[in-house]
């Protein structure tokens, strides 16, 4: 019991954040319940369905790859904050990529997998959950969900052919 009388089991928090984090990135398995996404829909499956050319198309001054790079950058920096980073981040550095070739796209997707695994490792290793760390952990998932929503909307445009092609 804490001073305020509010209690949450650490294991419950880790289980819940792990569940929704896995759903967000890996998607929920077919036939199982999900918190907010359709079965099998997640960051990885969404990105895997798109080519370098598709993710490089311009959508109202942005692109899918720009959101993807920003998303990975945010994951990496939030892990650093949870592990003690104090110096501020220049978030402009997360929006430097607008287009990629196939090799660069494969590298970025692989990097996203590594960043995700690093988040899981980081959260599992937190010894003391204070308000700041809890907020950062939830922000990782909320921020990812926000950009997944935007990316999936842009993907609809790509597949319908309404995005601006650089060709």
């Amino acid at each position: 019991m804490s001073e305020s009388g509010i209690t949450i089991a650490k294991a419950d928090f880790l289980n819940d954040i792990g569940y929704i984090l896995r759903e967000t990135f890996e998607g929920s398995p077919e036939g199982q319940g999900s918190a907010y996404l359709d079965n099998r829909v997640g960051v990885f499956s969404t990105l895997d369905e798109l080519t370098a050319e598709q993710v490089s198309r311009e959508h109202e001054d942005t692109s899918i790859v720009a959101h993807t790079e920003h998303l990975k950058f945010y994951l990496d920096r939030l892990v650093e904050f949870i592990e003690g980073r104090e110096e501020p981040v220049n978030w402009d550095q997360s929006w430097l990529i607008d287009t990629v070739d196939e090799e660069e796209w494969d590298t970025l997707k692989a990097g996203m997998h590594n960043s995700y695994e690093n988040v899981l490792r980081c959260l599992a290793g937190v010894a003391e959950w204070n308000r700041k760390k809890i907020g950062e952990a939830i922000a990782i998932v909320a921020h990812t969900a926000y950009h997944l929503g935007a990316i999936r909307q842009m993907a609809k445009s790509v597949k319908s052919g309404s995005a601006v092609s650089e060709e």
């Binding site: 509010i6 819940d16 939830i138 909320a142 921020h143 969900a145």
Partner: peptide, 23 residues
């Protein structure tokens, strides 16, 4: 005051789902 596993998972889902649709 008593945030059990259900309370945590529901509030998390409310937050994450809302962020997804805002995006």
């Amino acid at each position: 005051n008593e945030w059990d596993a259900d309370m945590v998972s529901l509030t998390m889902a409310l937050t994450i789902h809302s962020a997804y649709h805002l995006g």
